[in-house]
Structures are given as structure tokens and as C-alpha cells.
Design a protein around this nucleic acid. Sequence first.
DNA 1: CTAATTGCAAAAAGTTTGCAAGCGT
DNA 2: ACGCTTGCAAACTTTTTGCAATTAG
Lengths: 150, 150
Amino acid sequence: MSKKKSEQSREIFQRFLQSKGLKLTRQRQAIIDEILEEAGHFEPDEIVNRLRRKKINASRATVYRTLELLRESQLVEKLDIGEAGALYEHVSADAHHDHLICTQCKSVIEFHHEGLERQQAAICQHHDFQETHHSLRIFGLCKKCRKTKT
Amino acid sequence: MSKKKSEQSREIFQRFLQSKGLKLTRQRQAIIDEILEEAGHFEPDEIVNRLRRKKINASRATVYRTLELLRESQLVEKLDIGEAGALYEHVSADAHHDHLICTQCKSVIEFHHEGLERQQAAICQHHDFQETHHSLRIFGLCKKCRKTKT
DNA sequence: CTAATTGCAAAAAGTTTGCAAGCGT
DNA sequence: ACGCTTGCAAACTTTTTGCAATTAG
């Protein structure tokens, strides 16, 4: 299942590049592989370091440039987690989700709620607004941190 | 009404400073006045410039430092509008709202929807998550830009 | 008075860009 | 080959910080 999705993403990216006359270089390959391999939330620099550990070189500049391409092809999204900076995450076209962000331990919990989505759609309609995407972030304390609370 | 709210905010800030043994300086006064005067969304640098035009000097450093204090006292919030950077906005304790952000003209429309708020609360409960605040941003094309769409 | 505050300029942090050398198709 | 890419280092943008001079309470 997971493997299939990675394959799919790689194909999407490849097709995206092709359609724009761009090339699938060693670096771009490595970057998307790295992102798909360890799904989750990451910073650009993390990718550089993870690759470096594997003896693969990709400069910071290349990573930023590639992340931009991945964003264009809708394969990754940027998530601003407040104080703690910005993260990227891999997304599959069919699996939108929102985030609970713990301001204490920085953990990020994903969730999806149909009712919420529907109400948002209604709000857009009401404002004559044509949504392309949205981001709902709920900040607070996660289960664990509530207990540890001093 | 609006005047009253400004007064209220100023008082909240003053009390906040006092409670921390901090001082209400000329600069801090000017900064909060400026924010309250022209409600809306703004960048830190905008405040510096607006004040400069009025011949009031407040260095960038001071503006940043003061915005942080205003954030601590819950009088302003930061709003990340994607590509276009980050804005701050004045908020009154009793008037939470979310945002429709037009990716074409960068306009920001505020809205509030009780049903949405309730569903979010339910989600938090379900995850044993203690919310402190949240931010819902819906990106897309506003009414005007939909028409102008090429 | 005295501790908090300011402005400045330097330092950070994060991201972008120009350009010569290198690589994919 | 040709044109897209890369790496590098420099440039930028935004925000933070150390410090001597200043100011609010």
C-alpha cells in the first residue's frame, strides 16, 4: 500500500517534470526518495543532512529548488507551525488532512473530518470564494503534555 | 464602540506591562496606537514606516520587541499568508475569526462560524487535545478575482 | 535613582540568485 | 550537442541580540 503510494508519487513527479521539459536528475531523484522514505514532517535542512549521511550530495540550493517543484506538483505542502518554524510534508492527492500542533513537545497530529470540510465549503460558497486549498491548525497541548503540565 | 475597544486594548496592554514590571514608553505607546488606529493586517516594517511618516521614531528592533509583547498579551496575532509572507493583526479577546485569503489580489476576508468552532472543539476532545488557539486559512480566489480570471 | 528600554549595527537564520562547470536526454 | 541543473558563494530578507546611552516610574 505504502509502496504503491511512493511509486505513484514518483511517477507524478516524473510526469510533472517531463511536461515542463525538466529533467529527473540524480539529486531530484534522491530528494523525493528521501521524502517518501521517511514520511512525516521535515525542514529543508533536514533533507540536506539526511542525504549527506547517506553520502549523497545535494546542496541546500538544490533542495530548496526541488521542494519548490514538488510543491508545484502538489506532492508536498508547507506547514507553518508557529514559533517553531516551517515544516514540509509529503501529501497524496487524495488524502487531505489538518493538524493538531502541540506547542509544548512540537508533535503534530493529523486528522481529517468530513463535516468540517463541508462547512468550509459552505462558507466559501457564501462568500463567493473559490477555494484552492486550506489549512487548519489547532494549537495547544497534546494528551501527553496535558498530564505533564506543571 | 470602536473607540471603546481601542481604549480597552490600551488598558490591557498597560496592565500587562505593569504586571511584569515593564514600562509604557513613548515608543510602545506609539506602536499600539498605530496598530489600533488602522486596524487590519500589517507587516512589522509597515509599522516602522507609518510611524516614521508621522515623525515618530521607533527602530525596527523596538517594533519587533513590542510586537512580541503584544502577542504575549494576546492583543495581536501572527497570520501566515503563504507565499506572501507573514502579517500581524490586532485582535480583541472576544472576537476570534478565521481567514479567506485571495492568492491573486492578496486580500484577506475575515469570517466567523460557530458551527465550525464547535466541530473543532469536538475534534480536540476526541483527541484529548487541549486547544489554546487555532487558525483556519482558506486560500483561493475572491469574488472579484474569480471574474477577472483569465 | 535604577532598572528597563532604546537605537544602532552586527549577527543570525532562512531562502534566493548569478554564474561557470556538469549532466540528462 | 543543447539546454536544463548543480554547487558555490554572495546577496537578500526577516528577525534577533549585545551594548552604551537614555528614559520611565
